[in-house]
């Protein structure tokens, strides 16, 4: 409720909120600038925040292109991973035998470190965006699977008796009761999976990509272009925060309606 009220406030109020909320970030930036100016540390080790900002402003095309690519891959992979996780949770819900197979498999699959998966997948799918997408799908799959599985069993009190006396078929019970019951849990999965989706897309790009923010960071770091490397990190952080905030807002909205 407070979040939507804040959105409705005027832009001046919005700026004030920004300062009052994120003064900590601003303070860190100021301290950083003060420290590099006073100590005179080499720009290859630690760039000035101003230089980082200038680097972003002076190369908008390159940041935009790579940033949007990473964002699209993360978002696309997130959607596909969530869809896959939901689908498998539903399949597992329909039968005890299937859930006995799928739950341990999902657990094992999600426990394998992404870094170990990347070379294998790259050889299978090619050293390009397809592998990046596949990594994001795998990372996003597990929270969707776990939370949807739990949500499909979290039915409102008395609703099972109700659907039985209403003479509901299994299909109608699923559509009108089981699926809607899982929605709040599904939104939690979305919020939890959104930041790792961005992170895993960047890791995959960093290790084997030829474009995207991850690749851009590696290229900049190799060239000792520290300002650009930092700029890439700033943009990546911004994208990650954006995804998390959007997912949190969506979750709040849905919970208002659902509870």
């Amino acid at each position: 409720m407070s979040q939507s009220a804040q959105i409705r406030r005027s832009s001046g109020g919005f700026f004030l909120t920004l300062v009052s909320r994120y003064w900590g970030v601003l303070a860190v930036l100021l301290a950083w600038q003060a420290w590099v100016s006073i100590s005179g540390v080499n720009a290859i080790v630690m760039p000035h925040p101003i230089d980082v900002l200038l680097n972003i402003v002076q190369n908008p095309g390159s940041y935009w292109q790579n940033g949007s690519q990473t964002l699209l891959l993360a978002a696309g992979g997130l959607v596909m991973g969530m869809a896959l996780g939901t689908l498998i949770a539903v399949v597992a819900w329909t039968s005890r035998v299937l859930s006995g197979i799928l739950i341990p498999l999902g657990l094992i699959f999600s426990s394998v470190p992404v870094v170990a998966l990347i070379p294998v997948l790259a050889r299978l799918l090619g050293y390009d965006v397809r592998t990046v997408l596949a990594i994001v799908v795998i990372i996003s799959f597990f929270p969707a699977f776990v939370f949807t599985s739990a949500g499909l069993r979290a039915l409102p009190p008395g609703s099972e008796d109700l659907f039985q006396v209403l003479g509901a078929s299994k299909w109608r019970r699923f559509v009108h009761l089981v699926m809607p019951s899982a929605v709040p849990n599904w939104m939690i999965a979305l919020r939890l999976a959104a930041p790792p989706a961005v992170l895993s897309a960047m890791v995959a790009e960093f290790l084997m990509g030829s474009s995207g923010l991850g690749y851009m960071f590696r290229a900049a770091a190799t060239d000792f272009d520290t300002a650009q490397a930092f700029g890439t990190s700033v943009v990546a952080t911004a994208i990650s925060v954006l995804c998390f905030t959007a997912a949190t807002l969506a979750e709040t909205r849905v919970n208002q309606k659902w509870k």
Partner: peptide, 9 residues
């Protein structure tokens, strides 16, 4: 029912 069993959504 005693607990109304309404669907909250």
């Amino acid at each position: 029912f005693q607990d109304h069993a309404l669907l909250p959504w």
